[in-house]
């Protein structure tokens, strides 16, 4: 937090930047004291159990809710600044569309309501999925509907695409197809993506940036390539029914014991030495450990800390 000069000025390097962000519904804080940022150009995953505050965060970004505390910036500008709406697109889990509209009319809606509309890109996405333009939305399959919703989102030419569980209700083939579509369109236009998902394997495949929420707070945020290798999976024998004291020098995220055997996911604070077997955990293992242990200390990589002076590696 040495440098706070970027604060208050539009800084397009950060697609999303939260400082002390909080949202209270009646007595309960759905999101509390959240501070993190997502650099532009990343495919970021928003991970957390149900009720962790993922949807609340997306609602705050899309102006469907007002923050109760702190602030949220999109490409450096406050989320509720007038010009910000055209810079992001949002796709909800249930992908609402007008059921009686045809595919063509749905795209026309996008054209009528968005000044920067890219009809060619939208039509290409629809056509490549063999979705007939004159079909009514209510006759489309789940995958086709999702594709149309994506066409609407990408037709807006967003710089930031916010997705709430985009593939939850898709069959495996459609999921693979939509996943490829999302990544290729994002690559084509340099779109930053923030997607909430429960599908950890999918996140591991698709995402290069992580924002982990639990109980309304940020547990982990940063580059997947940096965060995951900071952890080691340690297996060994317990000492007097407890974790070996030597491990306490490190941050133990999660321990599981069976008999005298223990398996611990630790964040290394220096070299790990001991009569243990060490393995490199995958992203899925690290995510699961953090999700199961909401009390573990939060971990933010330098790029994820607002105000940290660092160029975004593009």
């Amino acid at each position: 937090m040495r440098d706070t000069t970027t604060y208050g000025t539009a800084d397009a390097r950060w697609a999303l930047e939260a400082r002390g962000l909080g949202k209270r519904y009646r007595r309960r804080w759905a999101l509390k004291d959240c501070t993190f940022r997502v650099p532009a150009g990343r495919i970021a995953a928003l991970v957390g159990p149900n009720g962790a505050g993922k949807s609340t965060l997306l609602n705050l970004a899309t102006r469907l809710a007002e923050p109760s505390a702190g602030e949220l910036r999109i490409f450096g500008a406050p989320a509720d600044a007038p010009g910000t709406m055209g810079r992001w697109a949002y796709l909800g889990q249930d992908k609402p569309l007008f059921k009686r509209f045809t595919v063509e009319q749905t795209l026309r809606m996008g054209r009528e309501l968005n000044p920067g509309w890219d009809q060619r890109a939208a039509e290409r996405i629809v056509r490549s999925g063999q979705v007939p333009l004159d079909a009514r939305v209510e006759t489309l399959s789940g995958g086709q509907r999702t594709r149309l919703a994506f066409a609407l989102a990408f037709g807006k030419r967003p710089e930031l695409l916010l997705l709430d569980e985009p593939m939850a209700d898709l069959d495996p083939v459609a999921r693979d197809e939509i996943g490829s579509l999302l990544l290729s369109e994002a690559a084509e236009h340099g779109t930053t993506v923030l997607m909430s998902s429960h599908l950890l394997s999918e996140i591991e495949d698709m995402c290069d940036y992580l924002v982990v929420l639990a109980e309304g707070r940020v547990r982990m945020a940063g580059e997947a390539d940096e965060l995951v290798p900071m952890h080691t999976l340690v297996t060994g024998v317990t000492e007097e029914d407890a974790l070996p004291a030597a491990l306490n020098a490190h941050t133990v995220i999660e321990v599981r014991t069976s008999g005298r055997h223990f398996t611990a996911l630790v964040r290394r604070q220096g070299p790990l030495q001991g009569p243990w077997q060490l393995t490199e955990p995958g992203m899925e293992e690290v995510l699961l450990a953090y999700l199961r242990s909401p009390g573990a200390p939060a971990l933010l990589s330098p790029t994820a800390v607002p105000g940290h002076r660092e160029e975004s590696a593009a």
Binding site: G41, R42, I43, D176, G179, S180, L181, L183, S184, E185, A186, A187, E188, D205, M206, C207, D208
Partner: peptide, 17 residues
Amino acid sequence: PTAAQVAATTKVNPNTT
């Protein structure tokens, strides 16, 4: 292939490519 083309064929994160 461009990152977008790789993503379209193999669902690889463009930044990985």
